[in-house]
Structures are given as structure tokens and as C-alpha cells.
């Protein structure tokens, strides 16, 4: 479709008028250089320059806690339900767009997850380009997510005194029409956009000592690496890394009984492979008993297993796991350590 332009001076009006049409969520500053997606009413609430939020926008597609079933024991009824909310998410970085694409693949893989698939279509996504690296933890280039690869309705790139907006779907187009603040892009805007992209090609370099294609091969040989022993000694299994990851989707199922002891629900709640009881079975066996084995599993679930199943890396390069890690375990350092130790085997 086409490109539109929004003057920066109209940005606040844009968010405000969007908020009159639909619930709008966007990155909001929380202090201490942290951000989170929250409901906003005005452009002033939005942190246009932000580093990846504490939790990715995944929380709107696959909520932390989600009722799947409601039952009434005495009436003998049990129904499946979907809780949803229409909304517009503004300001999704390319890494998080990729995260949503990963979840789309998983939940549309058969058997399909209807809850996810219906909810996702109630949400309009407005992407926002990072003209430079968020911080030293990001590694979006090596997984090829530093430039937009679709997955949005509208996509904003900041130019000198305006945003150039790629209109990708009719839903995005409707918002352009309804808010009445956009003008068609002129050649000068397209030139500026190309300049931004050109500069990005120069700044964004493979962040680790291995390139995009060799990354998967690196993991073919790394199952027995000593690097996992190092992580075993350092990781404290707090689960932060998996909870903040945009492409982690493991969950637990919990039954809740209401106080009448008759009605209740079956809820799914985020779970993570770093948590001690995650892989324990009856009889006490735990198939990933050590923290090192669980860390290895986490890395393999980003760089190897999904490549085999879905032909893409599930690491989006957002850097959240490194930023949040209690033990300061760094994704980039781990990959580099694997490269360095490739030859040595236990």
C-alpha cells in the first residue's frame, strides 16, 4: 500500500483521537530507564524513545492469566470462553513485531489455539522503527529483525520533523482516514526514509561472532558445551528471562474454585522452563534437573528447535533476557562463548 506522513506537531492529537476511537496502549516511562505498555489517552503519555518494555506486547495476545473454561458443578455445565478487548497497540518495535509473528506460528500450528487466534484479530498493531540501537543488549541484526518484516497494520519511522507511516492493511488505512491528520508522503519523505535505512545498515552489525545462517549450525554442535556448566553455576532460576521473552509461550493450567465451592474456572498462566518444578513427573524424576540444563533448553528453544519446526529463530534480539537477568547472564556473551568453545568438547 502507500506511505503517509504525520507531522510531529500532530502526534499528540493523533494519539488523542485514536484514544477516542479505541483503547490505545503504548510504551510509557516507569522511571529507572524502564518502560511498559499501558493504556494512554494522549501523545504526551507515550515514550516514543524507549528501550524494550519490561514485558513485551505479548501480554495483550497471550495474557499472563487467561480463563479458558468456566464450570458449574451442580448444573453439570462446562463452557469454553474467550475474554478479549479491542485495542490499538502503538509503538511496537521490529523485534516485538517478530515476537508476535513467532506466537502466531505456534498458536496457529495444529491443533489451533482459538483463544489466541480470535484475540489477535481484535488488536491493531502500529509498529515503530528504531533508528539506532536501543542499548548494548539488543541483538536484532543477527536474527534479522532490525528492519521491518511485516506483522503490522501501520508502521511509523521518525524523520526530522515528521513520521513517515507505511500503511500495510485496510485496518491501518481506516485509522488514517478516521484521524484525519495524515498527508500522502512526498518524494522528499521517501528519500529521508531511505537515508534512515541506509544509516541503519551501517550502524547495525552482527552483534555476535557468528552470522545469521551459522547461528543455527553453532547450536548443532553445542549441546555438550562447557558453557552450560558456567551458566549452571551462575543462574539462580528466578525465571525472569523466560517471563520477559516475547517468544516464550509455555504455560500452566490451574483450576480455581469459587467460594460457593460449586462454580469456578480453568485458567492458563504463564510458566517457564527455568522454574524448578516445570519438567518434574510423578515418581519424582526431573528431566531437566540442573539450572544449566534448563538454560541450555532455553537457548535451544530460541536458536535450534524452532528453526527445525518453524524455519525461524525464536530469539527476536530484543535483549530483554540480558537486561533482566539477576545473574547478569548475557545472551550475546553466551553465544560468543559457544563460538569460542566450539572445538572443545567435554
Amino acid at each position: 500500500m502507500q506511505y503517509q506522513v504525520l507531522k510531529k506537531s500532530s502526534f499528540n492529537d493523533f494519539i488523542a483521537s485514536l484514544a477516542r476511537i479505541e483503547k490505545v496502549v503504548a510504551p510509557v516511562a516507569r522511571g529507572y530507564n524502564t518502560f511498559s505498555f499501558q493504556e494512554v489517552k494522549d501523545g504526551q503519555d507515550v515514550a516514543v524513545k524507549y528501550i524494550p518494555t519490561i514485558l513485551p506486547p505479548k501480554k495483550y495476545f497471550f495474557p499472563q492469566r487467561e480463563k479458558l473454561i468456566e464450570f458449574n458443578k451442580s448444573a453439570g455445565t462446562l463452557e469454553a470462553l474467550l475474554e478479549y478487548e479491542k485495542m490499538v497497540i502503538f509503538g511496537v518495535h521490529t523485534c516485538d513485531l517478530a515476537g508476535i509473528q513467532c506466537l502466531n506460528m505456534v498458536f496457529s500450528d495444529k491443533p489451533k489455539d482459538i483463544n489466541y487466534l480470535v484475540r489477535k484479530n481484535k488488536i491493531i498493531i502500529i509498529g515503530l522503527e528504531c533508528n539506532e540501537y536501543c542499548d548494548q543488549y539488543a541483538s536484532c541484526k543477527v536474527v534479522d529483525n532490525h528492519l521491518p518484516n511485516g506483522g503490522y497494520d501501520l508502521f511509523f519511522t521518525e524523520l526530522t520533523d515528521s513520521f513517515i507511516v507505511h500503511v500495510n492493511t485496510i485496518y491501518g488505512d481506516e485509522l488514517i482516514d478516521k484521524t484525519r491528520l495524515f498527508n500522502p508522503a512526498e518524494q522528499i519523505h521517501l528519500d529521508q526514509l531511505e537515508a534512515v535505512r541506509q544509516k541503519k545498515r551501517e550502524i547495525f552489525k552482527d552483534e555476535v561472532k557468528v552470522n545469521h545462517n551459522d547461528l543455527a549450525k553453532l547450536f548443532d554442535k553445542s549441546f555438550d558445551s562447557k558453557v552450560w556448566d558456567d551458566l549452571d553455576a551462575r543462574c539462580i532460576a528466578c525465571g525472569n528471562c523466560t517471563n520477559v521473552c516475547p517468544s516464550c509461550y509455555c504455560f500452566d493450567m490451574l483450576d480455581n474454585l469459587n467460594l460457593d465451592l460449586n462454580t469456578g474456572d480453568r485458567t492458563r498462566m504463564w510458566d517457564g522452563c527455568q522454574n524448578e518444578p516445570f519438567a518434574k513427573v510423578a515418581g519424582g524424576e526431573n528431566f531437566r534437573k540442573t539450572r544449566g540444563a534448563r538454560q541450555r533448553h532455553r537457548y535451544f528453544r530460541k536458536f535450534k528447535y524452532p528453526v527445525e519446526r518453524y524455519s525461524r529463530y525464536f530469539c527476536t534480539g530484543c535483549g530483554r533476557c540480558t537486561r533482566t537477568c539477576m545473574a547478569k547472564i548475557s545472551l550475546k556473551e553466551t553465544i560468543n562463548a559457544l563460538v569460542d568453545s566450539k572445538e572443545e568438547k567435554k
Binding site: 529507572y32 525465571g239 522454574n275 518444578p277
Partner: peptide
Amino acid sequence: DYAVCVECKLNENVCMY
């Protein structure tokens, strides 16, 4: 039998650290 951090993250608090 997992850390308070798990719930803290789900609540999206700014970490004390």
C-alpha cells in the same frame, strides 16, 4: 516452589534491583 520474581514479572513491576 519458584521465586517471587516470577509473580513480580507477571505483574510488570519495576525490579527493585
